[in-house]
Each structure stands twice: as C-alpha cells, then as structure tokens.
C-alpha cells in the first residue's frame, strides 16, 4: 500500500476494493474475522442510482450512458473514526460492512483488517481478472492477408 504520494491514495484503493467485491465474499471474510466494533450509524444503508457517463468517440464530450445501482452507508466508531461504504448493487449489508471496514482501516487495527479483509478481496479480484485475461489471450489471433497469384 503506497500512500506516500497522496495521503488519500491508500484509502481510495481499499474503498475501491470494497465497492467491487462480491457481497458474499465480504460477508464471509467479515464473519470469519469476527469484527463487531461499537458504532453509530450516521447514514443508514440507502439504495440509489449513479448516472454512468461515457465520452463521445472515447475522448470527446461526456454523455449519459445509463444508471447503475449503488448502495451507500456511513458509520462512526465509538473511537470516533468515520467510515463510508459505497458499493455496487443493492446489498445493504454489503454497504454497512464496507463502511465499518473503512472506519476500522483508520484505526490502529488497520494492519489486521487489511490482512483479513482487504488483501483477500483484492487477491480474489486479481485472480478473477487474470483468469479472464488468460482466456482472452488464448483467443488472440494473427490475421494475415493471402498473396493472390495474379502476377
């Protein structure tokens, strides 16, 4: 985790891992780690939509492509740290656990939480990505044009 250049970079990285993780993966790791920190809910899990944008010609003016479902939640630990969860989809539990994990990552337990929650989620995502990339690589072709014997 390299937060030296930008203090927010590390937090951005773990929040991104939490948002994209399958809800069941996070729930399983959460149960296994047994975290149950005292906290108050600042914003109860709320399901909403985010308008996803693209760019004309991939490089030009932004346009609205369509929405995606997103669930968000904010918590404050008894020790004061505020955590925010923004996750893809509509699983309220996923958003709450992401917010709690974000808060715990700001405490002295960060190393533990990273080892038991964030790192395994990141590795699972990398494995999924690598498998698809390997299947795609197997379908890489080299087209060649035939020389026609006309001359």
């Amino acid at each position: 985790m390299d937060g030296s250049s930008n203090p927010n970079a590390a937090r951005k990285a773990w929040l991104s891992v939490l948002s994209k993780a399958p809800a069941t993966d996070l729930a399983n790791l959460w149960t296994k780690a047994g975290y149950d920190p005292a906290h108050e809910v600042l914003r109860a899990s709320e399901i909403g939509a985010v308008m996803v944008r693209g760019r004309a010609g991939a490089a030009g003016a932004p346009f609205n492509l369509g929405e995606m479902t997103v669930t968000r939640c904010s918590v404050r630990l008894a020790s004061g740290e505020v955590g925010h969860g923004y996750i893809q989809g509509r699983d309220k539990n996923h958003a709450t656990q992401a917010a709690l994990a974000d808060a715990l990552m700001q405490t002295a337990d960060a190393k533990d939480v990273d080892a038991s929650i964030i790192a395994p989620l990141r590795k699972a995502a990398e494995r999924r990505c690598a498998t698809r990339a390997a299947k795609a690589a197997a379908t890489k072709v080299d087209f060649f044009t035939m020389v026609r014997g006309e001359d």
Partner: peptide, 22 residues
C-alpha cells in the same frame, strides 16, 4: 429505475483502460 434516488454522476468511463475480453 424511477423509484431510485440519484446519488450522483460518475466520471466518464475510461474505455482505454478496459480489461478486454474481446
């Protein structure tokens, strides 16, 4: 879709960095 509150708008997706299946 009409029942969902709009949380916000994303940054334009960067298709250059797509993990391509095809």
């Amino acid at each position: 879709r009409t029942t969902l509150p709009r949380i916000g708008g994303s940054a334009p997706v960067d298709t250059e960095s797509m993990s391509c299946d095809r």
